[in-house]
Design a protein around this nucleic acid. Structure first.
Lengths: 150, 150
DNA sequence: TTTTTAATAGATATACAAGTCTATTGATAA
DNA sequence: TTATCAATAGACTTGTATATCTATTAAAAA
């Protein structure tokens, strides 16, 4: 199971921003170091997040990115959709235009099992879940980087 | 939810071969038409399936491809792995080398939910499931193509 | 005002997946 | 034995995702 690189990056970046405890914005350079995402590439991803109203940005000294709304309102589905990882409920692995339980392709049932669980996950997982179970996140935006950002 | 094109093709092709009722092999051209896969590209995918011992091939007039073993023994995981869509159980969306419940990345738990369900699906779904629930498959290897192949 | 920090914009490059083309080999049927 | 069918092999092209680079704009601090 692996997402396209860009989609994976998007989740990493958003998770990191969500985990920033003080109210201060996270500069993209700090984020790049914490997530291992190439810095310029990350900037482009973040730009999309801004346009999708998932984060806000602030230019200049002390600037950076922060969440645009409550973490519980930012679904993984929205994050993925922003980097064009769309999950069309009616898409068919077989490439059929019309494929549903009335008119199923040979893979319809087997595929639906997976598709449905993905849909559920993307729809019901939010950045709040990341905050509730942050793992070893304390080391992410660590003192070294934090000092430079502060 | 979408697989890489090649992985999707692999599932389509294998499903079609599994659904061939008479014992005769399916020529790749017929398969290409039935699945919408570019014919030469399909050949490459099938070659990999042969090397992975999932299908056998027969050259010449009346030749083609057929399953190398019982459909119940061909897991989706094997099909996907053959076209390099690997599903490493220990892979981490965050890119960490070590990431498990003892030492989790910030996305470990949310991601594991999805990863586990994918793993289960790939491991427990076989071509037998496709045969048991073939959808509107009768139209796939239809008379027009079948005549040419026979 | 000047300097520094940091986002934004867009052109360019690289890598890899996807797709095409031509030729060859092997098997069957006539 | 000849003609035809079909897999195999591999070079080549195309397209797209990923990554890099340079320059510009905006804001804060000194």
């Amino acid at each position: 199971m692996h997402l396209p690189q860009t989609a994976e990056y998007a989740l990493r970046a958003m998770a990191c921003i969500a985990l920033k405890k003080d109210g201060r914005p996270v500069p993209s350079k700090v984020l790049a170091r914490a997530t291992g995402i190439p810095s310029h590439y990350l900037s482009k991803i973040l730009r999309k997040m801004v346009e999708a109203d998932l984060v806000t940005s602030q230019k200049g000294h002390g600037g950076g990115f922060r969440l645009a709304k409550d973490p519980s309102e930012i679904k993984f589905r929205s994050i993925l959709a922003t980097v064009d990882y769309k999950i069309e409920p009616n898409s068919c692995v077989f490439g059929w235009d019309e494929c549903d339980s009335d008119d199923p392709c040979p893979l319809h049932n087997t595929w639906s099992q997976l598709k449905d669980s993905f849909q559920w996950w993307a729809e019901n997982t939010t950045l709040q879940d990341v905050i509730d179970d942050p793992g070893k996140a304390e080391s992410l935006l660590n003192p070294i980087n934090a000092t430079k950002a502060d």
